[in-house]
């Protein structure tokens, strides 16, 4: 009987020892997998750009054996040389967990894996920063570097709250002198021949009976002034154009189109027959020039109801604009009476 127990014990030992060794090995592997092993790199690591150009730097992740769930990325750079325009996530990190911020010399964002069940386990781009080259570099390129931990932080499964980032490789940017893109002056050309919603088609055909066409770019809107408030729903529009020319006027927002002819002094006026709604509007006045091109000018204005002091949505009890005279008078009166109250007894 004792021999039976001995054999059973030996058998258990023979099975148990390899099993224990195997399980310990498994745990060791698991632990090794969870150890910090992630690398972040800015790519390309080196690049050259001309002043005024924009370019992207990708933030590549190599998670090693980690199962990455979250990365807080913060990079710094010389704001005299570089300006960060945007920062967003890359395809390897499909979620933006808090919105990216670009500021003087710094950009940061928090990105994440799709879900806990789909961590980042392979190499790829987790974020993209768009830069503008601002000033030529001298002998030393401009450096873009990751901020030190914990500001740059990579979180992963099976590692508790540890930062699994082990290496962060920055980038060197060489900026060459000269501007690649000339600054262009914006030009607004209103072409009043297209269809205006809902059904209105603007056809600024000159009045043939007058035979007059404009000879210079002299179309002007004198009233209402740009961005002014108008306190009537039927304002009178006034302007200048070459004498005898036909001026096409389109009043938005519900379009009203008319043509008027300037007088011998080049003045034109128009008062809408349909009252304008309260709120923002604009007027576009155009003429045909001698070369058969169109010249136009516009003015935006706001129709405000008398006494509402501003917008269509005067929700706030406090006025959003107005004069200060009443307040000054009140203060002056208050001070006079206060002074009287304090000083009179002393004088008397």
């Amino acid at each position: 009987m004792k021999k039976v127990f001995l054999f059973i014990a030996i058998g258990l030992l023979l099975i148990g020892i390899p099993a224990t060794i195997y399980l310990l090995g498994q745990q060791k592997d698991l632990r090794a997998k969870a150890a910090p092993a992630t690398t972040l790199s800015l790519t390309p690591a080196q690049s050259t750009h001309a002043v005024g150009t924009t370019f992207n730097l990708n933030i590549q992740i190599n998670p090693g054996s980690n199962q990455v769930r979250t990365a807080r990325i913060a990079v710094t750079f010389d704001p005299a040389k570089l300006k960060a325009m945007t920062i967003t996530n890359g395809p390897k990190a499909p979620r933006i967990l808090s919105s990216g911020v670009v500021e003087q010399g710094r950009a940061y964002i928090v990105v994440g894996a799709a879900s806990n069940a789909q961590p980042i386990t392979s190499n790829g781009t987790i974020a993209v920063i768009r830069f503008k080259a601002m000033e030529a570099t001298a002998a030393t390129p401009a450096a873009v570097v990751f901020e030190a931990a914990p500001k740059t932080f990579v979180g992963a499964s099976m590692e508790g709250g540890a930062n699994v980032l082990v290496t962060a490789n920055g980038a060197k940017i060489t900026i060459t002198g000269g501007s690649s893109t000339p600054t262009l002056t914006p030009t607004l050309t209103v072409t009043p021949t297209a269809t205006v919603t809902p059904t209105l088609t603007l056809t600024p055909t000159p009045d043939d009976t007058t035979g007059a066409t404009a000879t210079a770019s002299t179309i002007q809107i004198l009233s209402p002034a740009e961005n002014s408030d108008v306190t009537t729903t039927a304002p009178t529009f006034q302007g200048k154009a070459p004498p005898g020319s036909t001026v096409t006027i389109v009043v938005y927002s519900t379009p009203q189109t008319v043509t008027v002819t300037t007088d011998e002094n080049g003045n034109w006026t128009y008062t809408p027959t349909t009252p304008l709604e309260e709120g923002p509007h604009s007027i576009v006045a155009s003429i045909q020039t001698a070369s058969d091109s169109t010249e136009a000018t516009s003015s935006a204005f706001v129709v405000v109801a008398s006494g509402t002091g501003g917008g269509v949505a005067a929700d706030d009890a406090m006025p959003i604009s107005g004069n200060i005279e009443t307040t000054v008078i009140l203060i002056a009166l208050g001070l006079v009476f206060l002074a009287s109250g304090v000083l009179l007894p002393m004088i008397l």
Partner: peptide, 27 residues
């Protein structure tokens, strides 16, 4: 949101183009 819905043609002649948009409070 409160107001008009208009379309207007514009001609862009340069890479940069500016428009002005009147916007009243709380609109």
């Amino acid at each position: 949101l409160y107001g008009t819905d208009t379309k207007s043609p514009i001609s862009v002649t340069a890479p940069t183009h500016q428009v002005k948009v009147p916007l009243t409070p709380n609109n």
